Structures are given as structure tokens and as C-alpha cells.
Computed example of a mutant assay.
Amino acid sequence: MTSIKKSEVLKCIDYSKENKLIDKLNSVYNTLPSGDCNGCGSCCMESVGINLIEFINIFNYLKGNDKLRIECLNKVLDYYFLEYVKKSPCPFKDDNNRCMIYEVRPLNCRLFGHWKKEDYNKNLSNVTKRNIDYKNIIKSKYGFDINDEVVNYKINYCEDFIPEKEYLDKATRLSFADELMVLDSKIFSKEIIDIDFKDRGIVEYFIDCLLNENVAYNIKVKVSKDSEAREVAINRLKKILVR
């Protein structure tokens, strides 16, 4: 599979601005319910799933700040290539548990805490099962074990978050996601960007923008198996890819 070409992303940014897709994205964000969060950062521990329009929005946000972009991309590389070895926080979280892209944070981040507890815990059980199944696949295919800390890590339901009104049911949460899918479809229909229409986490979007997807994954597997080569490989990639 090919990588996400930066030139295509820049065209997507221009198209999104011209057709006010970013404005429409922000309009969706503005309709989301608010709540009281204590800012502990305990939920910021994964490569949260995002839409293409959200990636474009975040990419554009970082494009205007070289220092922040470099810091975030270095952390993205660490997160991705060490993902099988240790559990790391979201690469967009700073050392003070603050989100470095808070103004453009994705839908899933904005909705965390608004889930009904029963829905959240059911989804959490499914995530853990998928992680275990994936560990078995990696063991069978490549002959090494993903760290159990990574496989069994759980972002527990937040008891401290207080929604402004009420917790959201599944249908309501999905209705917001559907609105973003409509914005994505407008970009894909114009064939501006040559990538598969599939689920990606925020880390995977940026990795795909830096490296060929298959190359990145092969490196990831190799450095996960070889502890001596790991630091050398990651530092080399940072020097080559992050400019």
C-alpha cells in the first residue's frame, strides 16, 4: 500500500478550506455536549481513531507551528515503533498531561466521558478481546510476544467526568461520527487523496504520511523483536523523516 502523500494532504487542506469542510467540522464539534473534566489525562493513552477530515485539520494545525510539529512527530514515531514493547501515552499529550492539539482534538477525545457506563464497559471488553486475538496472530506469524502490559491495558470508565446534561447513548454518539463520515466522503469522491477508505488511528495517519505503510509495519515488527537495534532505528528515522 502507498503512503499518504503530503502533496495530496495539502490539496485536501485547500479543498476543505475552499468548500468550508473545516467550518462544517467545527460546527459538528460545537454541537457536542460539554462536561466537567478534572484534566487527569488518564484517558489519553492510545492512538485514538479519527476521520480523514480530522487528520487534515490536525495536519494543518501543526503545519503552522514547526516546533510543535517536530515534537509531536518525534513522539508519534516513538509511540508507533514501540507500541508492541511498552504502553505509551498519546503522543500529543505533554509532560503536564495537557493536550498539545487541544483546539483541534478529534471527536473521540471530545466524546470521552459522555458514554453510558454500560456501553463503555461492553466496548472495553471487546477491545481487550481483540488485543488478545491480535497478540496470538503476531506470535504465530512473527514468533514474538507483544508485551502483556500493552495487550491488557485498559482505559477504565471515568467516574470523575460530569456531563453538563446527560450521558449519551450509542445512537447519539454514532450520529456525530456519521456527520464526519459525510465530510470524508466529499473528499474521497473528488479523488484528491489516494488512500484506502478505512479506520485509522491518529498515529497511523501520521505514520502513513511519513512512510510507506508496509515498510513502516515491517520496521515495526523488526525493531520490536531486536532490542539492540530498536533505539538506533528509531533515532535514524527521526533524523530522516522529521524536518
Results as ranks from 00 to 15, higher is better:
153 Y>G: 05
153 Y>N: 10
153 Y>F: 15
153 Y>L: 10
154 K>Y: 05
154 K>W: 02
154 K>A: 07
154 K>H: 04
155 I>R: 06
155 I>C: 09
155 I>N: 04
156 N>Q: 05
156 N>R: 11
156 N>D: 12
156 N>C: 02
157 Y>T: 00
157 Y>R: 00
157 Y>C: 02
157 Y>G: 04
157 Y>Q: 01
158 C>K: 05
158 C>D: 09
158 C>F: 06
158 C>A: 06
159 E>A: 00
159 E>F: 04
160 D>H: 10
160 D>I: 03
160 D>G: 00
160 D>W: 01
161 F>I: 01
161 F>P: 02
161 F>N: 03
161 F>G: 01
161 F>Y: 11
162 I>Q: 07
162 I>L: 02
162 I>W: 04
163 P>R: 01
163 P>F: 04
163 P>D: 01
163 P>M: 03
163 P>K: 07
163 P>N: 04
165 K>Q: 06
165 K>S: 07
165 K>H: 08
166 E>H: 06
166 E>L: 02
166 E>F: 07
166 E>K: 04
166 E>Y: 02
166 E>G: 00
166 E>S: 08
166 E>M: 02
166 E>R: 02
167 Y>D: 04
167 Y>G: 01
168 L>Y: 04
168 L>D: 08
168 L>M: 13
168 L>N: 04
169 D>G: 01
169 D>Y: 05
170 K>M: 07
170 K>V: 10
171 A>I: 07
171 A>T: 03
171 A>F: 08
171 A>C: 01
171 A>K: 09
171 A>E: 13
172 T>E: 14
172 T>V: 14
172 T>Q: 06
172 T>W: 04
172 T>G: 01
174 L>M: 13
174 L>I: 10
175 S>K: 11
175 S>A: 11
175 S>R: 06
175 S>N: 12
175 S>I: 09
175 S>D: 14
176 F>R: 01
176 F>Y: 15
176 F>W: 12
176 F>M: 05
176 F>Q: 05
176 F>I: 08
177 A>H: 13
177 A>L: 11
177 A>M: 14
177 A>C: 00
178 D>F: 12
178 D>R: 08
178 D>Y: 14
178 D>G: 06
178 D>E: 15
178 D>K: 11
178 D>N: 13
178 D>L: 12
179 E>Q: 15
179 E>P: 03
179 E>I: 09
179 E>A: 12
179 E>R: 15
180 L>E: 08
180 L>Y: 10
180 L>C: 11
180 L>M: 14
180 L>K: 11
181 M>V: 13
181 M>D: 11
181 M>Q: 10
182 V>C: 03
182 V>L: 03
183 L>I: 08
184 D>L: 09
184 D>V: 12
184 D>T: 09
184 D>G: 10
184 D>I: 13
184 D>N: 15
185 S>N: 15
185 S>Y: 13
185 S>M: 14
185 S>T: 14
186 K>F: 10
186 K>S: 13
187 I>T: 06
187 I>C: 07
188 F>T: 08
188 F>K: 09
188 F>Y: 15
189 S>I: 09
189 S>D: 15
189 S>L: 07
189 S>T: 06
